[in-house]
C-alpha cells in the first residue's frame, strides 16, 4: 500500500528543474519553460511581457497582483503557474482587447479613482468581477469586494465612486471650491 502510494506520488512530482507550462492569457495560449515553484505572478511579470499585474506584497495581502481566473479574482502571487494551466487567465491588459475601454475603466479615469496607479490594475479587475456578478452593488458591496485591495495614495473614496457610477448608481461629489473668501 505504502509502496503504491509512493509510486503514485512519484509520478506526480514535477521539477525542480524547468518544465513546459502552457498558460491561456487573455485568450491566447502561451508556452513557458518554468520551474514548478514559479508563481503565476512571477510568470506574468518576469517570463512574459504582461506586467499589468503588480508585485507589491507577494503574500496575498494587497491585491495589486489580482487577475481573473475563469472570471474570478485571485491573487496571482498565491498561485503557482502550473496550477493555472487549463484555466482562462485575464489580466488588466485583457479587459479591453480591442482598445475600447470598459465602463469600469472609463469611470476610474472620470472619477480619478487612481493616483500613482500601481494598485489600479487590481482594483479595476476586482470591481469588474464584482459588477459581472452583482450589476447593481451598494456602497457596502463595493467596499466589501475591494477589501482585499490596498491603495497607499488614498484613492478609496473615488474607487467606490467609480464602481457605483460604472454600475449606473448615482453618487454625489464631495468637493467644493470656495472663491472670494
Amino acid at each position: 500500500m505504502a509502496q503504491e502510494l509512493n509510486k503514485h506520488n512519484a509520478e506526480k512530482i514535477q521539477g525542480p528543474d524547468a518544465i513546459p507550462v502552457q498558460l491561456t492569457i487573455n485568450g491566447k495560449a502561451q508556452a513557458f519553460q518554468l520551474e514548478p515553484r514559479v508563481t503565476l505572478l512571477d510568470a506574468l511579470r518576469n517570463h512574459s511581457t504582461q506586467t499589468g499585474a503588480k508585485e507589491v506584497c507577494d503574500r496575498a495581502t494587497c491585491g495589486a497582483c489580482t487577475v481573473l481566473l475563469d472570471g474570478v479574482p485571485v491573487y496571482a502571487c498565491m498561485l503557482l503557474a502550473i496550477e493555472a494551466q487549463g484555466r482562462e487567465i485575464t489580466t488588466v491588459e485583457g479587459l479591453a482587447p480591442d482598445g475600447k475601454l470598459t465602463k469600469v475603466q472609463e469611470e476610474f479615469i472620470a472619477c480619478d479613482g487612481l493616483q500613482c496607479g500601481y494598485c489600479t490594475p487590481g482594483f479595476v479587475l476586482t470591481v469588474s468581477a464584482l459588477l459581472a456578478k452583482n450589476p447593481k452593488p451598494s456602497e457596502t458591496d463595493v467596499r466589501k469586494a475591494c477589501s482585499g485591495n490596498l491603495c497607499r495614495c488614498g484613492s478609496y473614496p473615488r474607487v467606490v465612486e467609480a464602481a457605483l457610477k460604472a454600475a449606473g448608481v448615482a453618487t454625489a461629489s464631495k468637493c467644493e471650491v470656495l472663491t472670494n473668501v
Partner: peptide, 24 residues
C-alpha cells in the same frame, strides 16, 4: 515587515471625507 501586521488603512476604514478648497 508585511501588510498582515503593519496595518495600512483599507477601503472599509475610510470615513465620509468632505473637502472644501479655498480658491485664491
Amino acid at each position: 515587515p508585511n501588510f498582515e501586521t503593519y496595518k495600512l488603512p483599507g477601503i472599509s476604514d475610510i470615513p465620509d471625507i468632505e473637502v472644501i478648497l479655498l480658491d485664491m
